[in-house]
Design a binder for these strands. Structure first.
Length: 439
RNA sequence: GUGACUAUAGUUUAAUGGUCAAAACACCGGAUUGUGGCUCCGGCGAUAUGGGUUCAAUUCCCGUUAGUCACCCCA
């Protein structure tokens, strides 16, 4: 046996939430639940473990092997700790797909595991709010999803200047790449990956890499399209080079309707961004990403989009679906950066100080009586001197200190001290309850 | 997975190839044997880990572990 001392650190890439941290964590998710209930979303939960096949079916082998916690159980089954919630959600919906009245509005706040090298905003365990709408093709579902995403932030007190929502549409990307620029599927794929990396590399490098994939004049067209900073300007140039293509026109019309709808519901900080790619592999319609506009934290926080083929792996017909996920870490960083995290404190109603250990039994009975009135009460059974007990009452953020000593026990009274003011009076038990009830 | 930087009380930091590693906050006790917050005094408490160089290592070197950052990846 090794005698090595056990480490007190949490496992690599995971976090302990001490009470003062967990209060903040809970506060964040309380606010989120408030918003989602207001929009009529129902909360669900799934197991932490799934059969590995569930992830193999959707993602590539590489993800399953290299980025998940996978193992064999004692019965020889291949299991994986969930690295995301969507496959579990798809499984649940597919299992009862005939039972529901659509659309379904569901959300969950699972913890997820990925075997990664931890760094900023990327841990091995994190919590993620997952919001999904199932069973509708309506543009208003897309708009609602954006509205929910926006509301999740504004509920914390963020304003529309604090963040921007970038939107794009995979059908539009596809129409431009294949119909206008005439790219093959391989070229489209390579190009989408490159555009996704555009901000990470220099302009020259980007341009030269584009030219490794497509011809010179095609590259020029693409670069010009990417430069357009409004949807109107983008469309104008697109029409110039596309010569009356119906597929392109349909994609434009469809996106225009969506964009107009978004503007009508008062989202001024939604902007068209043809560079936005986001999981090209499975999104089938609009995609979005929320960016922090604060100079200290100018990056993407979360996003999602429409993916209509989610139930395919269960051999079920396509069902219109939209979803997005928001991690707890980026959200925390956003709120912290913008000063939107309130001081969340734990309070107790009363701290019972006992002057001598011979009164502990009486004090315990009294404490139980107070709890039966729904007060949160802590009793001090240390037998320390009163000043130490009061100090602890103060540290515990108690509203009142209730002192029980010889005089009180003899007269069946209690001394009620209001810690904020230092005022106190010795009263009957009934009167003490009444005092505690005053706010 | 690749590379860089970092590791000192519970926490945030200081210092040093050579006597007892310093301070603040926190905690405990006392000043105040029935009255907290402010003040004063005292106490507890650390060189991540394994090896090497050296008369001597917390300090220099290597490994490990952990943290941070970038790349990769990002469901």
């Amino acid at each position: 046996m090794s005698k090595k001392t056990l480490s007190t650190r949490p496992y690599k890439g995971t976090r302990d939430f001490y009470p003062e941290d967990y209060r903040v964590h809970q506060y964040m998710f309380d606010v989120i639940r408030t918003v989602l209930y207001r929009f009529g979303y129902e909360e669900y939960m799934a197991p932490l473990l799934e059969e590995t096949d569930l992830y193999r079916a959707k993602s590539g082998e590489e993800i399953v092997n290299e980025q998940t916690y996978s193992f064999e159980d004692r019965g020889g089954r291949d299991l994986t700790i969930r690295p995301e919630m969507t496959p579990s959600l798809a499984r649940m919906v597919a299992r009862r797909s005939g039972d529901y009245t659509y659309p379904l509005r569901w959300f969950s706040i699972p913890n997820l595991y990925r075997y990664e090298r931890p760094q900023r905003g990327r841990l091995r365990e994190h919590y993620q709010v997952n919001v999904d709408i199932f069973g509708t093709e309506s543009k208003y579902a897309d708009i609602e999803a954006l509205d929910v995403a926006r509301s999740l932030l504004t509920e914390f007190g963020a304003t529309s200047e604090d963040f921007e929502i970038h939107i794009n549409d995979r059908r539009l990307i596809h129409a431009v790449y294949s119909e206008v620029l005439g790219l093959s599927e391989e070229q489209s794929y390579a190009l989408s990956k490159l555009v996704d990396r555009k901000d990470k590399i220099s302009t020259e490098e980007f341009q030269s890499q584009v030219r490794e994939i497509v011809a010179q004049d095609t590259a020029k067209h693409l670069e010009t399209l990417l430069e357009k900073d409004s949807f109107e300007a983008f469309v104008a140039y697109l029409r110039e080079i596309s010569s009356d293509n119906q597929i392109v026109e349909d994609a434009i019309q469809s996106f225009e309707t969506f964009l107009n709808g978004v503007r009508q519901v008062g989202m001024s900080n939604v902007i068209f961004d043809f560079e936005l790619m986001r999981g090209f592999d499975y999104y089938t319609g609009f995609v979005f990403e929320v960016f922090d506009t604060h100079p200290d934290n100018n990056r993407a926080m979360f996003g999602g989009g429409r993916y209509d083929n989610l139930l395919e792996i269960f051999d079920q017909p396509p069902m219109g679906a939209i979803g997005f996920g928001m991690g707890d870490v980026p959200l925390w960083v956003f709120l912290e950066t913008h000063g939107l995290l309130p001081q969340v404190e734990d309070r107790i109603d009363a701290y019972v100080c006992v002057l001598d250990t011979q009164y502990l039994a009486a004090a315990y009975e009294y404490t139980q009586m107070l709890r039966s009135h729904d007060f949160s009460v802590v009793m001090d059974y240390s037998g320390r001197k009163l000043s130490a007990q009061l100090k602890t009452a103060d540290r515990k953020n108690a509203r009142f200190a209730l002192c029980l000593g010889e005089q009180e026990v003899r007269n069946e009274t209690v001394t009620v001290r209001t810690l904020a003011t230092g005022e106190q009076e010795t009263v009957s038990f009934e009167k003490a309850v009444a005092l505690l009830k005053q706010v």
